[in-house]
Amino acid sequence: MLSACVSILAVALICIFIFANGLPGMMKIGPWRFLTGTRWKPSAGQFGILPMILGSVYVTFGALVVGLPAGLLTAVYLSRFAGVRAKKVLRPAVSLLAGVPSVVYGFFGLVVIVPLVRELFGGSGSSLLSACLLLGVMILPTIASVSESALNAVPESYYEGALALGTTHERAVFTVVLPAAKSGMLAATILGVGRAVGEAMAVMMVAGNRAVIPDSLTKGVRTMTSNIALEMGYAADLHREALIATAVVLFAFVLVINLAFSIVKRRAKL
């Protein structure tokens, strides 16, 4: 039963293929110029992915601003406030929301969020703001369901102890139960960040995809993922290598996030 080794093999293969194909390209362009160059013009031989790196960071941060509070509050509600009936409705809703394919989110963003942003804030609508809103919605169920299980794992005696000391239900939850579930909720957040960084299709459909560092919320952005997905189809030679090198950078990001997640998770013992 050594099929166990397949997953190790798969990780090794992925690393080898992506690094072997990406690093030479990065070296040819020059790692420093590649990482900090602000111009991405494949036709002119300029490959700077700083706009994409920043795009990914901005979009992820924006998504957290949108999705984190709602996600955490939903988790608190599900875990400590909701009645049996509300729970019965909301919990499947959250997990269904987590299962909706990203293209459907992207399509929804395209036909609802983009026009809405265009109406309210001007510009073309395909923008950083749209991408943040959409991604915020997408990571919400992830954050909600993981932090709910963290909250449920807090021993009931903590909560009861707080109540016995005469405090109200809300105070007990927010000052006693929440701090106890802190690291679980952090893990949920990191998982959400991972999902936001890795999302390609939905972002591609709403973000406008301009390879320039955005100077306002209503301007278009391009993330690392959408950079790969957009141009992989027709890229050749150095351009292709540059795209794979983008994947190397993305891979490094994801590995760091994963590492953070597993450290936090170990501490939280989820």
């Binding site: 166990a4 080794c5 997953s7 190790i8 798969a10 990780v11 293969l13 992925i14 293929f17 992506i18 194909n21 991972g194 960084v197 890795g198 999302e199 390609a200 993922t225 790969i228 997905a229 992989m232 795209l243 794979i244 994947a247 993305l250 891979f251 994801v254 590995l255 996030i257 994963n258 997640f261 597993s262």
Partner: peptide, 24 residues
């Protein structure tokens, strides 16, 4: 090792899988 590998695999974004698949 397998557990670490599986954890890494589950965190890799799908576009990277796509890229890997197309390369490999």
């Amino acid at each position: 090792l397998v557990r670490i590998a599986a954890e890494t695999l589950s965190g890799i974004p799908s576009i990277l899988y796509g890229l890997f698949g197309s390369l490999c």
